[in-house]
Design a protein around this nucleic acid. Structure first.
Lengths: 253, 253
DNA sequence: AGCGGCAATTGATCCGGATCAAGGCGCGCC
DNA sequence: GGCGCGCCTTGATCCGGATCAATTGCCGCT
């Protein structure tokens, strides 16, 4: 049945990868933007921020940015592409901790243990800004804006961590997941109603603590209810209000 | 059957409330100890840390330390007693986010939103050290040890947040919960094998995303398997190895 | 084109834990 | 003391989602 849709597939969704060639445009979407830019390039202290940033990548889908146990030396801001973080227990079972979009930061949970407590795996072609953490925290001592930024990012991640904790139905989880992705894309200037799911159904299911089959079924049901349009990994949110109602209780307010 | 045990109830477990009258003993167990003490009282910068600390309490069981929406002005280190943090959604359903023992810190997740995103409720009689956050972060700019402490506490909490996320059986959750409590008591110098559960079965169940009946059943099963001894809220861990095996996959390593 | 592997979908069955229900126990209060 | 009210425990039933299983489509490979 789906083969008939080939010609009529959803017309090119915007590519959610920040333009690597346009420095300021990316930086406007980055978690560090207010430290890097808004605070002003002219302030002499911030020259150091430029110095301690290192552009790394590309990583191809499946490649590791860091691995569990690697010594912690830096945090990474996603410049382009999508990353998942995961833990693998000794029985080999994977546990997806989160997905990170352009402008978001990975590695903050390694500060305390001083080693990365999880893997970071590229889901597609990814690029990063690498911030040496010793240099960053030294800078934070001299520039309150940088320190405040770090505190806020850490605290923000504390809030999102408890989002998927509740005991909620599969429908609630999936709806909240989609609306969360939408708002994060919107926050970075991408479309909130049409985007590409870089992660597999299995990854989504694992992240939401569901079976892959359940995620598939919920997607099918949401489609038949005209809440979404989905084909493969191309998603369009048809009824954001409806999804928000379903996902409320998991979503902020 | 239990009434017969009244005379033979577990002999007085140590009271897990830091001695409020013994300043240095408590501080040795506190999350800020290395900033407050180890770094040395003699350093002039640290005099400020003494100044910005304010002792508050007591709060009685059921009283709020802060409420959702309160403006964020300070973080609190538990000096004595136990606290739960929780969110209440608009349908009135409670969601327990965590329990905090003497020496642990609450309020870190309010830095980013600048308002407390949850309630903090005393489970028994509690006392706190209140740290004004503006003063604290100003101090952090000048004293690297304080800054590092804040980073580490935030990062540490990020790690524990993902602990209860996995899809694990009721047995695994309960075993991991007990062993986590045990190690946290041990880290503060209390007995790791015998302590009082300040929270109700309902709170434990809510925190672990189980029904209260399930928690009760698991406790009963663990007792019949000689893993624990429990009577009301007095707990003794009889077979830590066994519990650890059950809870592994949720516990660090 | 033909093959093989992986992701996704869909159907059928099963099970762990939620829910409903019924006491027991402890404690504060009149 | 006697009563009422939470908290806890234990039993019976039910249901959402996991698991098992089969099919299809896509894509890379030769």
């Amino acid at each position: 049945m789906q083969s008939k849709h080939m010609a009529g597939r959803l017309p090119e969704p915007p590519n959610p990868i920040a333009d690597d060639g346009d420095e300021t445009r990316f930086c406007g979407t980055c978690a560090f933007s207010s430290a890097c830019i808004a605070a002003g390039y002219d302030k002499p202290e911030l020259v150091e921020l430029q110095c301690l940033v290192e552009h790394v990548g590309p990583f191809r889908a499946g490649e590791h940015i860091f691995r569990t146990g690697d010594p912690f030396r830096a945090i990474f801001a996603v410049r382009g592409g999508t990353v998942k973080t995961r833990m693998v227990d000794k029985e080999g079972r994977e546990q997806v901790l989160g997905f990170y979009l352009p402008g978001e930061v990975i590695g903050l949970n390694a500060i305390y243990p001083e080693h990365f407590p999880c893997d970071a795996v590229a889901l597609d072609t990814t690029f990063f800004c690498r911030f040496s953490f010793p240099a960053m925290s030294a800078l934070a001592s001299r520039v309150p804006a940088v320190q405040q930024h770090l505190f806020r990012m850490l605290s923000k991640e504390l809030g999102t961590a408890s989002l998927l904790a509740g005991d909620h139905s599969a429908d609630e989880r999936v709806a909240a997941f989609l609306m969360d992705l939408a708002s994060r894309y919107a926050a970075r200037g991408f479309s909130a109603t049409r985007f590409h799911l870089s992660m597999s159904r299995g990854d989504i299911a694992n992240y939401l603590r569901l079976a892959a089959e359940t995620v598939s079924r919920v997607f099918s049901r949401f489609r038949s209810q005209k809440l979404i349009e989905i084909e493969g990994r191309e998603l369009q949110i048809v009824d954001p209000k409806g999804l928000r109602v379903i996902g409320q209780g998991l979503l902020p307010e």
